[in-house]
Amino acid sequence: MGILEVKNVGKRFGGLQALGDVNLSVAENSVHAIIGPNGAGKSTLLNCLVGKLIPDTGSVMFDGQSVLGRLPHEINQMGISRVFQTPEIFGDLTVLENMMIPCFAQRDGAFGLNAIADMMKDREIVDRALDMLDEMNMLDKREMHAASLSRGDKRRLEIGMCLSQRPRLLLLDEPTAGMARADTNNTIDLLKQIKDERDITIAIIEHDMHVVFSLAERITVLAQGTPLVEDTPDKIKGHPKVREAYLGEAA
């Protein structure tokens, strides 16, 4: 039994069957990559996992509990954090504040009416946020407005925000899309480090095969809303159906 069990999930947008009949099992503390051509339904699948979309059919279980019917913040509080395809951060807030918010959320829950205390005097939260910024190599940018960060930094910040919640499952949607080579390599190193240091399960959607093959322990290939194959990276590389459907065009 994996920590995440997706069974027979289907999702239709009007006439478009975005997800057919998806079955997916992600083992605890593994890195599981989901690859597939554009429009294959990868982001839609993630949306069904975090409560952004409700699948038409099927079930999604996280750690033995159903995710369906819960609100996004409840699902997050179960231990699932998500990095979006386009960075979702608090642009008007400083980098430090961006990092403090998930720390508050993790410690104090979905709502807290703490309207009198000075947030900067909450040493536990501030220190945790600073530590995470340090880990992300962004300590010097802590007073900047998050909106003025470079794309790569925004992504790092978002990953850091998700990690500071100490999630059990981290979902990454094309974390290196639009990044320069150097930034991509930094991100790979960062993710490797996270995976080695923490008890965390990572599900990653990625276009860049270099990233996929340097991180993933298992790979699911999705095409037109249905999983084509699921196997180890070595097997996937040589799989004829995959080469035809996907790698052929990406290589």
Binding site: N76, I89, F90, D92, L93, E97, M100, I116
Partner: peptide, 20 residues
């Protein structure tokens, strides 16, 4: 306060707020 920061976070990005 932390509450005030959350209110600013709502203005800035409710989506991120939810998924945090």
């Amino acid at each position: 306060s932390p509450f005030g920061m959350m209110l600013r976070a709502i203005k800035s990005n409710q989506q991120r707020m939810n998924y945090t």
